[in-house]
Design a binder for these strands. Structure first.
Lengths: 138, 138
DNA sequence: GTTTATGCAAATTCTTTGCAATACT
DNA sequence: AGTATTGCAAAGAATTTGCATAAAC
């Protein structure tokens, strides 16, 4: 919780109970979360609409980044190296087809890719799908 | 339209007006489409629900594949090399932050990636974002 | 005390399901 | 004729907006 408060004040955001709850949920889970996920986790802790607004403000400040998904789910994950002005989203996302969780594999370097001329790339996101380490053990 | 009929019969799907319209929309647009996109394009041509069901059956048969998106939009695109049993989704998707269109860059090879042990990868999708060739000209 | 964030109500959009009517082979 | 597909109605999620209240600084 202390970490959550630190992140909030670091980004000039007022420290509220709702924001701390949402941020703590991301800190304690190492996978991407959607608004519906958070709504279930936080239950009566804070209002449905508040969660949407908090997610927006966290995106704005660069605390979170959007995670690509192929099923139309809007997911978010903690940005370690992001700032408000530039998102360093150059990392891999692994989505498990068994448990449904998407995790960020920050430690794996993004491969080099040669695009046709005319394309200006601002963000790279890689979405791998299969069975995650946890699920393939069980 | 002839091409649409060929694809349908090739996949043992009955040739109906609705399916031809949906498939033609994909053939004529070289970018990923969502159900709401199609609903606007086809207007009174066919029912909202029918589009959902057609998209499902096309996914089933491997005519379409799901395209990753980071804004919670469920998008689909034509599969060139896909079959009903195996999706060859190993290609790049480029989403333009200006016009919002996502196109498949089939010709660019997917880079090799080394994952930690325990991860079994079944599908690879790369989502690049920036400004597309068309938008950077204008 | 001022500003910003929250909660509630309500509206809008996206998606799914059931069933009777219709179109395809 | 027989089966698969469609349209309509209706329900259920997900998301957005407006405004008064409450909390943070």
């Amino acid at each position: 919780m202390a970490k959550a408060e630190a992140i909030l004040s670091q980004h000039q955001l007022r420290i509220t109970q709702s924001r701390k709850s949402v941020l703590t949920a991301f800190i304690e889970n190492n996978h991407a979360l959607s608004q519906p996920d958070l709504e279930k986790m936080l239950e009566s802790d804070c209002d449905r609409v508040t969660i949407y607004r908090i997610l927006d403000s966290f995106l704005d400040k660069g605390i979170l980044h959007r995670v690509p998904d192929n099923e139309g789910k809007q997911k978010y994950a903690l940005c370690d190296a992001c700032t408000a002005h530039h998102h360093h989203d150059e990392h891999l996302h692994f989505k498990c087809n068994n448990c449904g969780k998407t995790e960020c594999l920050d430690e794996i370097p993004m491969p080099e890719i040669q695009l046709p001329s005319g394309y200006q790339v601002e963000e790279w996101n890689m979405l791998l799908q299969g069975v995650c380490a946890e699920c393939s053990e069980a």
